[in-house]
Design a protein around this nucleic acid. Sequence first.
DNA 1: CAGTGAGCGAGCTTCCGCTTGACTT
Length: 553
Amino acid sequence: MSIKPLLIVESPSKAKTISKYLDGEYTVMACVGHIKDLPKKELGVDVENNFAITEEILPDKSSFMKEFKTLAKKTSQIVIATDPDREGEAIAAHIASEVDKDKISRVQFTEITKEGVEEGMNEIHNIDQDLVEARTARRIIDRLVGYKVSRVLWSTLKKNMKFVEVSLSAGRVQSAALRIIVERERLRQAFHSALYYDLKAELQAGDNSFSATLVRVDGKRIAVGKDFDPNTGNLKNDKVLLLSKAQADELVKELTNGNWTVSNVEEKIKNSNPKPPFTTSTLQQEAARKLRSSARKTMRMAQRLYEQGFITYMRTDSTNLSTEGINGARNEIMSRFGKEYLPDQARVYATKVKNAQEAHEAIRPAGVTFVPVDKVRSAIDEDTARLYDLIRKRTLASQMTSAKVKQIAVFIENQKSEFRANGKVILFPGYMAAYVESTDQRNGVTEDQETILPNLEKDQDLNCNALIAEDHETKPPARFTEASLVKELEAKGIGRPSTFANIIDTIVYRTYVTRDQGKLTPTFLGIAVTQLLENHFTSLVDSQFTANMENGL
DNA sequence: CAGTGAGCGAGCTTCCGCTTGACTT
């Protein structure tokens, strides 16, 4: 006798949702990620024999496999709906290899909504062997590199550095990440700071005062930070004027009694567009900046939001919103902000990230009506509610109209010197009414901050309240934070959404890097490991290696 | 003679990516 057909997905919460959509017509099971892998204790790859591999059922998946095989025998149809990406295809092949092939069919869901599931169920395809083989190649490369090179570290560094207490390791991803951090440290060590001066004037127009900075003397631009070579601290551009303290003081004296006249007012109206909805990487970055949350904590909170049905899947590299998500955002924008904030057409964001696989949509509030933050607060906790609020606002903003910003540059002359004052006025907030992204910059000025200047006209005379010489020092490039490292890794195509948080933990656990007050600093050991790898395994620490491998698959 | 230490051998570690719990190495 035959029982209900089986449907296999990766995630348990997905299983629950899909089971509901399918009205109990299927027994939906979750395999919870990979079910097979190379053996942990040995290489599992026969290099002599055309890279033949040994794969076995993972120890913690044996009970799932037992139950699955029992049910598989009793049913006539097994539908595999693992994620539509390279790893998902491999899982599908692994599952199929354990049961009667004739019962197997493969479907894919690109969004977990009622429509998305129905659509997916109607389109049956074969398991894509090319994708499966691509993942096998990826797995073999990672295993060979990881196990072989780690051994080299044990037999060299570990032997000669008795104080090293942890097991050393190297790998395609962790070694590239470590190198990025070490390279930054080298830049910092090679850095020579430079001292330069400019003048700042407090000017008065009628009842209003504002400040302006010296930009030119005698037609020659005043040197700023970027005009200096970071390796020497010397000027790299001889067309600019470097003011010494004495010259700056002299200039103050000359200008104090001169006349201040507006020489030009330039106004530009610019559109500012919202950022795309969150991916795993951008969510981790923003949660670090706005909520001071570590990558790991962010993912733990996002997991809970996902399990309780508050957000869509949290491990994704796609900025695409499903029709449901777009409708949800547009409905709320219309009712809360009004039609001026709603573009005629939904915004579409192209994914720019390298090696994106886009198996899921962007991270957004689930459903077609986005649950209010209060509901999350009472269901989970305050921190998680704040993360949800971030996701909710970012999703809304991504579908709102552009902001209109007026940028004003006022030029002021005094004899042969030219000063500049910048102003910014938001004429129409658009998406800024919902959400503005934070910045990694030291000054921390976000896009929605205005700088108000009084109304000024050409040839207008001004009074000067104060004129001072200001000293500035060039700063070395900042150490990486978790957030800026994740950004860099993603930009270089190193690692995947499911591993960004792990990569940082690995290099910290191996004591290659310390994490002090959010700053990632390489240790002596980390630098030594990187140097050894650079000398003997150049391509491994080359950040292009991963990207090139991906293209080759 | 007894204690010390050089020298040797055995046994251990390790990758990336997919997914959750369990209690963090």
